[in-house]
Design a protein around this nucleic acid. Structure first.
Lengths: 114, 114
DNA sequence: TAAATATATTGATATATGTTCATATATAGA
DNA sequence: TCTATATATGAACATATATCAATATATTTA
């Protein structure tokens, strides 16, 4: 008997893909990875990642909008951090997956499927 | 004292973002989500997700290249499935994160940070 | 071997996205 | 209130990407 297959609801699907999309860019991923370790202000992020203030600010805006990061003002500066522990968990799972992939190279045929 | 901050190595960073990028598209995410539940052939994927065979094949090619899915031929058809359990775990973490975000709406200021 | 079916690939195109430059906003200090 | 500093925003542009149409490849069956 054919088992029941579950499709993602379109609203949830959008939320999911927006989250993954946000992490699917080198600069943003590096920023988020930093913020999983420590709360940082914008200027420190710029210097650590090595990109311009404008670029970092644009990326932080995206990350804010989908609630991947939160922020607080302290005087002149604004400190960012990841919104919850699941963000760090996402990185862990992705790294584990990549480890798995690296260990399984012999299992994967190099040629094309057809 | 300033604690040591860890940057992602550029090769790992690329692998990570390619993985997230692959999941950061509605069609691909839906496909992968289906495949976390059951092994499916291409035609079934087309019908279930509701997109053309060409489009599905393109997406499957991407997912294959970064080893998010594996496949096997059975006669005329090719059956796809997720490469390892961490792929499903990525979805779980993302969904948990979204749950957290939804529950914390009051904690997030609606206005802009500056 | 020919026809049918299943899947992959190529080329073209419209849309999305990352970055830069310039400018605006907000806070602190003189 | 003026200046300096920190961060955000808007416009423009170049590049990346998703989708479609057409075609190619592989397998099965007649």
């Amino acid at each position: 008997m054919p088992q029941q297959i579950d499709l993602l609801d379109s609203e949830i699907l959008n939320d999911i893909t927006n989250t993954f999309k946000a992490l699917g860019d080198n600069t943003r991923a590096q920023i988020v990875y930093l913020l999983t370790q420590e709360e940082l202000n914008v200027n420190t992020i710029c210097q650590t990642v090595g990109v311009s203030q404008s670029t970092v600010s644009h990326h932080l805006a995206k990350l804010r909008n989908i609630r991947l990061v939160k922020y607080r003002r302290q005087g002149n500066q604004i400190f960012y951090s990841v919104d919850d522990s699941h963000v760090a968990a996402l990185f862990r799972e992705a790294l584990w997956h990549l480890d798995h992939v690296r260990q399984n190279i012999p299992d994967y045929p190099g040629s094309h499927p057809v």
